[in-house]
Amino acid sequence: MGLDQDQFLYLLQAGRLAAMFNYLANPTRFLKIQAAVQPWLAALTVAVLGYGLYLGLFVAPPDYQQGETVRIMFIHVPASSLALGLYVFMAFAHAIGFIFRHPLAEVAAKSAAPIGAVLTLISLVTGSLWGKPMWGAWWVWDARLTSMFVLFLLYLGYIAVWQAVDEPHRAARIAGIVALVGVINVPIIKFSVEWWNTLHQPASLLRKGGPAVDPAILTPLLWNMAGFALLAATLLFMSMRAEVLARRVRQMEMAQVGRAG
């Protein structure tokens, strides 16, 4: 059976990807790479997020209707989109853990959960602060607020499962089921609450015909989104390191108990 050149190149590419995937499957190697990358990533985070916040809080013009309160957006929007993105990331990591038994996938998912939960909380709190002057209430049962709140509950349930199950491998499997069931439900919940009630403005960044936001606002927003994403990546790597080390400590303790008994 002959392969033409395209097929050959495709296979080669796939092989390379798989090799990289396997290369990172070694926790010791991960710790080494993480230690090397961490300071640079942290520095980049500080730079991008700092610049983004400076642009958002001082340079961007106030909105003609909303005044200075519009600046809440530069925290609110990146936090919200990242909160949702991290949940999907978590479920994706668990799927990889189930399919390939990648040893770091579940560590990544577990580490992503508290970051995502805090971002969801930030999104809820800033949204509430923004809602008070705009809608006249701290909380309204609007579709997007409700789905964010439900996302927060999904995060809490997921974290609680990790807390409740002692043995890490068992906890990983069960938490994976929770995350995958949750991610199937995220679109259903979103659709259902929109059906139920909507007051929030529709999506204005990702839509047909380009963003409906003025460049003076859009540029700082994009900087902030990049900054938040970098921040999440930095925290994720740090948290993953802690988790890998915690598992080693646990193994050593088990070995010690085994020797003693």
């Binding site: 409700t146 439900v150 509950l153 999904l154 809490l156 349930g157 609680a160 499962v161 929770v178 069931v181 949750g182 439900n185 259903i188 919940i189 659709f191 259902s192 609450v193």
Partner: peptide, 10 residues
């Protein structure tokens, strides 16, 4: 309850 509540909303 915490796990099931979000799934019951739809």
């Amino acid at each position: 309850s915490l796990l099931i509540l979000p799934l019951y909303i739809p």
